[in-house]
Every structure is written in C-alpha cells, then in structure tokens.
Design a protein around this nucleic acid. Structure first.
Length: 679
RNA sequence: GCGCCCGUAGCUCAGUUGGAUAGAGCAUCUGCCUUCUAAGCAGAGGGUCGCGUGUUCGAAUCACGCCGGGCGCGCCA
C-alpha cells in the first residue's frame, strides 16, 4: 500500500511541477525523490525537490515548496502536504483511509494478473556434484530461492533451474579416487552410493584425491584429462562411475536443500549440453558472428578465443578511428600483452571450456539457440516434489514449457566469477543479442568464509600463513568447510532442546517439527540478513543465536500474535464492528503515532519487495521483517490487548494483530521461513 | 601489474540510489515475569563514517589521490 501512495504522490508532483514551472525548466524534468522523513511527526513521505528547483528558478527553496504545497491540490489517500525545514515538502497520509485499504483481505484478482507477466529464470545452487554441500553453497541456494520467492510475490512467472556440472573435472577427480585409489568396481560404487551420507564420503575422498593428484603433476594431468574426456563422451567405466556419483550426489543435495524448503523446477545437466550438441550450435553462431577467432600464433595458438579488452564502447570507437588496433607483434608488448585477457572458449585439443558451454546454455535460456532439451522426471526427489531434469534419451510427457524464452535470467553465482560471467554476457552480445545480454544478470554475492578459530574448532590444522589471515576460505579440495547437513543438525538439536524445555507436555513429533521450523528460520535469516556484497565470516556462535536480529525473533512475534488471538476467541465471542471514525480517532495525533507507525510499516511490504527486486537484494526483505516484528513487540509491551477496557479499542487492537500477522507471515514466507503455532 | 569489491560504535552489520539530529543486533551496565509466551521490553554508555582534496544549497553516499584488507586475472569450473 505504501508504494501505491508514494507513486500517486510522485505522479501528482511531476504533473504539477511540469504545469507550473514547465517553461522555466525547459525540457529538464526534475528528479522527484521521495524519502521517509526521520520522524513520523514529519509525515510519511517527503521530497526535497524544491532544493533542486531553487537552482533553476533562482528562488528560495522554501518559497518554491510553499507554492507547490499550495497548488498541488488533493491527492487520493494523502491528507495534506506541508512545508518543513528549509524547503522540504512533507506529505501526511490519511491514516483512516490507509487502514481501511490495508485491513481488507487482498482479493484474488491479482492471481489472474500473474499469468500476463513474462517468464523469469533464476538459476541457483549449481553445486559440483562430487561432494557434500557446505554453508557457502547454502548461501547461494537461500539467496536464489528467496529472490525467486520475491519475484513470484511480485507476480512474475519464475522458473528455477539448478545447473549440474556432471561432466567436469571435480567429478573426474572423485572418479579417479574410486577407480584408481580405492580400486572399486562400478557396482561397488553403486552400492556405496546407496548408503547414507554418500556425499560425506565423497567429501573426504575428493580431498584425498586432489591431494594425491597434486603430488605427481605430470602423471596426473594425463590421467585427469583421459578421465575427463571419457566422462564427457560418456564412454567406459569412468563415465559409468561418473554418472553414478553425480546422480547420487545430486540426490543428496536435493535432500539437503529440501530441509531448508528449497526446491527446483529443472535440473539442467551439462552432459545434455554436450550430447545434444548445444555447444556445436552455439559454436557455429559465435563463429558466424565473428564473436570468437582462431588464434594462429602465441601461446594460445590453436585455441578459439574471445578477444577481450576492458574498455567501453566509446573507447573502442576511438581506437578504431585512430587505428591503434591490430598490434600483432606480441614481442613488443610482452607482459602487458593485450591478449593476456583473451578468453579461451575452445582449447587447442578441440575441447570446449566451461565458458563456451555456459554461453550455449545462456542462449538456450533466452530461446536463441533454436534447440531444446528432452526432459524426464528426476527419480528419488524429496517427498512431495516434482523436479524435471534434462535428458538425451527419450523425453517424458507432461514437462512444463522449459523452452519458452525467458524475459530475464538471474544467475546466482559468487562474486569470484564476475569476470567469467561478463564474458558469457559478452558472448551473447557479440552474437547479436545485446538485449539478452542486458537481461542476463549475474546475481553475485560474496563468499562465506571461516574465522581461523572456527576452522580450528572443526579440527583443521591451519598453515601458519592461514592462521595469520583474518579469514580462511572454505575449500572442497582441502576438505575444509562447514557441511550444510552438519550445521542444520546442530541447529535442530539446539532448538529441540529449547522447545523441549518450554513445551515438555507436547508430543515428540510436534516438538521436532517446531524445532525444525525454528532451525530453518535461524539459518535462512542468518544468511539473508547480510547484503550480497558482504563477506560472511561464519561463526557458530552467531549462526546458532536465536536472539536479537534473527529468524526466531521474527517467528516469535507471530507466535505471540497467534497466542493472543487464540485466547481472544476462547474467552470472549463478542463481535464489535469498528467504525472508520473510531479508527481515525484512535490514530489521530501524537497518541496515535506509535500505532500508526506499526500500521504504516505493516502496509509497506510492497515497498520493501519493490526495493529488493530493484536492488536485487533479498536482505531488504529480511530487514523489513525484523523491523516489523520489532515494531510489534514494542506495541505488545505498551498495550495489553485482551484486557483493554474499551471494546472498540480492543477490537481495533485485535484487528491490528491480524494485520501484522498477515504481513509478517507473508514476509517470512518470502524468506522461506514458517512460523510455528507455538514456540 | 591490471580489474572488481570493501573500510561506519568494542564485535557483526544496516544506511532504499545526494537530504533533516548517522542506525540495528551482539557484548557491557541498570531496571522489568501472580497480567496476551522474558526466544521479550525499557534505559545507559559507546562514532574524526580509513585519511586527504574536490564537486554543491547539502556528502557515510559522487570524483580524484593516498593508506589498509578481500577476491579475480589457468588450454580449472
């Protein structure tokens, strides 16, 4: 609701300013900034636009503000506009009218509007299927899942894809571990893959394998290359074991993520990108468009590369005109070789790199490749879920239209891959799809790292240099990291102990379910409260905290409301109808400010969601949720709802509780958090 | 060396695109459970927004330069 009013106000201001000062301003449209004033006494929305106009009109800002305030006329839902300070325009909402809109249950007509919106793809998780998921992977999945929920809330049609690199080096290393180091047969691996915690087994094996492979480089390079080639081509025991490992690990990842309420629509597998010749098609497109070229000399001779220079289009124009392009003698430039940043797309042995495959995949997402996968239902999905996967065998009927071109694609990938992601987008651009390149959005985030102390707690011996550093990277190769399932287990144990203490009378199953919800709330909120750019230095103490700015705090506010409403319906059944006048009277003046601020905040979820999408920042919704819970707790302590003497006031309080509950539950749902009935 | 990100309270972080007196949580200290669940609330202390110079009515926010930290730059992904 907040966004509706500010939008209306902005439009009115633009129209009025254009009409009144249009001539003096010429074609310049002033930037109408609307902000929240620091105090509620100053209104709900304010604009400093008069300051900007003052320059052009050569008049005092306060004078201009007064003129605007006087001439603006009425705006629906806004009671009045006042001038404050040196020239601020402060708008005061009609509190009663706001309440009336916000308290009405939202109708279902928004559902029909959803169908009209364009399709958006969110790709997230995309963990190499060769080991257990760690907390860094969970940050990726939680960010992607939450952003997808936010997009859906804003009535977009969202398809969630999880890219499975089942033919990469990481899988190859584990295959080497099983076949060469442990001398297992494919059947032996298959049996092992059915055991619980297969992902944990691979976690250790992968660390061992890379360690061993690092010892004897020349020999292992060959072994690795051969294994990788066999896997890519789908030939022999290597490929067989690779398939077994990748599929089983994907199952593990799906189960882990399902614990956190994270699901997928499609598993897009790299093997199909290869086998269905997606790359071959993309390769032709890139060559035809001149996006890539065959290097004939230098160290990259024989490779297909994408020439790459970090410069803007204008700079390129200048270069073309001045003719500084084409200094081919590499000797003269030596280290500062401008080809140093050229990106290899196809290796000299003819094998395409990850970037190439990703370009093909990205082209497909936008419906530009002219090909499609075949699909089948993924077996062994977690209970209640239907997940489709690509296949190169016969497809299964009933798959959603995955080939429908996306209007926008969000790829949730950590910030270290920013450069490679740029290359992928550039690939689209140079193939002639600039619009798709613009809509190809890298939703980047900083890593989750460990404090040296945390790493020590996990039992890892740090090298002296690592111990001196502020943080330690998690590393699959080193086997260093906080495994997702371990952390969730730990959280569930901690919450269960607490729930048991508080509700010993409840059944065991109920206690476990409640503990689970709280654990998920704690973990998801912990990962979402940081903005994407912020490095998370993981610490068990913070992650296991249930107080303050945490998920359980937000859940607790809902639980309190439910308790009140439960007791309210038990004790008194009197129904009191609230008149708009009564509400307006309650909210009027300074006495009503606190209540009004709570209502205002409850009605500003749309604004938070809008800002979150605009900035691609799920943390905004987490912040909103916490603040709403905080505002409610404040209200809760100030007013005793059920013992309120005035029946009109009590009815209002109860209605307000209902409003806050609705909005909190919605906001929490966007974060993938469910509030329990009691906790 | 080049490129990207960051530097805000003791610690961990917000700060919605340049706005009014810089905010939370944790930690510390002081109060509040016979009243709707204390996973809570109220209050206190704690700041040269890394440093400097600019841009302008106005800068934590923008530009440039330093200082300090992280990441990326492989025929890995």
């Amino acid at each position: 609701m907040y966004i509706t009013l500010t939008k209306r106000l902005r439009e009115a201001l633009v129209a009025h300013i254009q009409a009144k000062y249009g001539e003096a301003l010429g074609s310049v449209v002033p930037n109408i900034v609307l902000e929240r004033p620091p105090k509620i006494e100053m209104g709900e929305a304010a604009s400093p636009v008069a300051f900007e106009l003052a320059k052009r009109l050569k008049k005092a800002p306060r004078m201009i503000a007064q003129e605007i305030a006087a001439g603006l006329g009425t705006v629906e839902g806004i009671a009045r506009v006042e001038v404050a300070g040196a020239g601020y325009l402060n708008a005061y909402f009609d509190r009663g009218a706001f309440w009336k809109v916000v308290i009405e249950p939202t109708d279902s007509k928004s559902q029909t509007a959803a169908a009209a919106k364009a399709k958006i793809i969110v790709e997230h998780t995309s963990i190499n299927p060769n080991k257990a998921a760690h907390i860094g992977h969970v940050r990726n999945a939680v960010l992607g899942d939450t952003f997808a929920r936010i997009l859906k809330f804003s009535r977009n049609r969202v398809q969630i894809q999880n890219y499975i690199d089942n033919t990469g080096v990481q899988v190859a290393d584990v295959v080497i571990g099983f076949l060469q180091m442990e001398k297992r047969s494919p059947i032996g691996v298959m049996q092992l893959a059915r055991e619980p915690k297969f992902d944990y087994y691979c976690w250790d094996l992968y660390a061992k394998a890379t360690q061993l492979l690092a010892h004897d480089k020349p020999k292992t390079e060959k072994l690795r290359a051969a294994t990788l080639k066999a896997i890519e081509e789908g030939q022999g025991e290597d490929a067989e074991v690779g398939q077994i490992v990748a599929d089983a690990i994907v199952d593990c990842h799906l189960r882990t993520m399902a614990r956190l309420g994270i699901g997928y629509d499609l598993l897009a597998r790299e093997s199909e990108i290869l086998h269905l010749k997606f790359w071959d098609t993309a390769f032709e497109m890139l060559k035809k468009a001149g996006a890539i070229e065959l290097a004939t000399s230098g160290k990259m001779a024989g490779c297909w590369i994408m020439p790459w220079k970090k410069e803007t289009a204008e700079e390129q124009d200048v270069k073309e005109k001045t003719g500084t392009e084409g200094t081919e003698d590499a000797e003269s430039t030596e280290k500062g070789d401008e080809h140093e940043q050229d990106k290899i797309i196809v290796r000299s042995n003819g094998v395409v790199t990850y970037v190439g495959k990703d370009i093909a995949y990205q082209l497909w997402k936008f419906g530009l490749l002219g090909k499609d996968f075949r699909y089948h239902k993924w077996p062994n999905t977690p209970a209640g879920e239907t997940i489709w996967a690509t296949t190169s065998e016969a497809g299964e009927a009933g798959a959603p239209n995955f080939a429908e071109p996306a209007n926008a694609v969000y790829n949730v990938i950590d910030t270290r891959q920013a450069y490679v992601q740029e290359v992928v987008a550039e690939g689209l651009r140079r193939t002639g799809y600039g619009a798709a390149a613009e809509k190809s959005i890298h939703l980047s985030y900083a890593m989750v790292v460990l404090t040296p102390r945390c790493a020590a707690d996990l039992g890892y011996e740090l090298s002296p240099e690592d111990a001196r550093r502020p943080f330690v990277d998690m590393s699959g190769r080193k086997g260093l990291g906080v495994k997702a399932d371990d952390l969730i287990d730990k959280l569930e144990a901690a919450t269960l102990a607490e729930v048991h203490e508080r509700h010993a009378d409840m059944g065991e199953r109920w206690q476990k379910e409640t503990a689970h919800k709280i654990a998920v709330g704690a973990l998801r909120f912990f990962l979402l409260k940081f903005t994407r750019n912020s490095l998370i230095a993981f610490d068990f103490k913070d992650a296991l905290s249930f107080e303050g700015e945490t998920g359980p705090y937000c859940q607790y506010a809902v639980v309190r409301i439910r308790g009140i409403r439960r007791k309210g319906t038990e004790t008194g059944g009197e129904t009191v109808t609230l008149s708009p006048e009564t509400v307006a009277a309650i909210l009027a003046g300074a006495d009503g400010n606190d209540l009004w601020e709570l209502i205002l905040h409850a009605g500003a979820l749309d604004y938070a969601v809008d800002a979150a999408i605009g900035a691609q920042e799920p943390a905004f919704v987490a912040k909103y949720t916490f603040q709403l819970a905080q505002a409610f707790n404040n209200f809760y302590h100030k007013h005793h709802i059920l013992s309120e003497e005035d029946s009109q006031k009590r009815a209002f309080f109860l209605a307000l509780c209902g409003l806050v509950e609705t909005q909190l539950v919605r906001a929490l749902d966007l974060l993938g958090i469910e509030a329990p009935e009691k906790m």
